[in-house]
């Protein structure tokens, strides 16, 4: 070993240093571009204190509007989830590259990408123009969103299955639909159920929002109250929405727990 040559304990990581500097420069640049100033921030804090003051205590006197909005949101979420998942099943299958030829997977994948790219609220705007105000548009918008997310997850789940089992069913001379129900579905059923509960959960969150653009649910009342500076009612609605989402998450977890056991039984 040549001892005279200086040995370096840590080779300098120039790329990391450059990245840190670039990050700092970016933050400064973006903040100036978006006109973030300390003064604005301080004024905002002042406003914030007043704002919170007006939100408290929450005002539940108009609970009828609140309950009606929440019920409609729940209905939108349920119907959009059912519709979306039913449509996602074939679309997801068509998008699975290990089972379908290219000319089928490509259109399906583009459709899924299209559905995924737009926030449900943006999709809702388009549907409000086409179908008019109300829950219909909300259901349609969230169905599209469900196809985007559930469809992608279904396709990925199908692409991960073991083809040996499919081959075995195919070898029995089973027709295509039977190959799907015996060779494919048993392998993915548990995960599909899991994805579906996640989708219901996610649709519930968004169904409280699509009302902002007039697509039904509690979002409309929420946005209106915001614009009227009716902040104590806003506070009441926000609390109820959070509670609803919380309950939704708990229910989804419970349902998943019931059926996850089933997938374990399947594997034994």
């Amino acid at each position: 070993m040549n001892v005279t040559a200086p040995r370096v304990a840590f080779p300098p990581n120039w790329r990391a240093r450059a990245a840190w500097i670039a990050l700092v420069l970016y933050i400064v640049y973006a903040c100036s571009l978006l006109d973030f100033t300390w003064a604005r921030f301080m004024v905002g804090l002042d406003n914030g204190a007043r704002f919170i003051g007006r939100m408290l205590p929450p005002n539940f006197t108009r609970w009828e509007i609140l309950v009606k909005g929440l019920t409609e949101s729940i209905e939108i979420a349920i119907l959009a989830s059912v519709l979306g998942i039913l449509l996602s099943l074939p679309i997801g299958l068509f998008a699975a590259r290990n089972l379908m030829p290219l000319w089928v997977t490509w259109p399906s994948r583009i459709l899924i990408a299209l559905c995924r790219s737009f926030h449900p609220v943006i999709v809702a705007i388009v549907f409000v123009k086409a179908l008019g105000f109300g829950a219909m548009s909300g259901i349609a918008a969230l169905t599209v969103a469900s196809i985007g997310f559930a469809g992608k997850l279904f396709a990925e789940a199908i692409e991960e299955i073991s083809l040996k089992q499919v081959e075995a069913v195919r070898a029995t001379g089973a027709p295509f639909m039977n190959v799907i129900t015996y060779g494919v579905l048993p392998q993915v059923f548990g995960r599909f159920l899991g994805f579906s509960t996640y989708q219901l959960d996610s649709n519930l969150r968004n169904s409280t929002m699509v009302g902002i653009v007039g697509a039904g649910g509690i979002g409309g009342a929420l946005f209106a109250a915001f614009q009227r500076f009716d902040y104590d009612f806003v506070c009441a609605m926000l609390l109820s929405i959070i509670l609803l989402i919380f309950a939704g998450e708990v229910v989804a977890n419970k349902v998943r727990a019931i059926f996850v056991e089933r997938t374990r039984v399947d594997e034994e």
Binding site: M1, R7, V8, A9, F10, P11
Partner: peptide
């Protein structure tokens, strides 16, 4: 050097 890993530092 003692533990026989000279040259493995990085």
């Amino acid at each position: 050097d003692v533990v026989g890993l000279a040259g493995f530092a990085n």
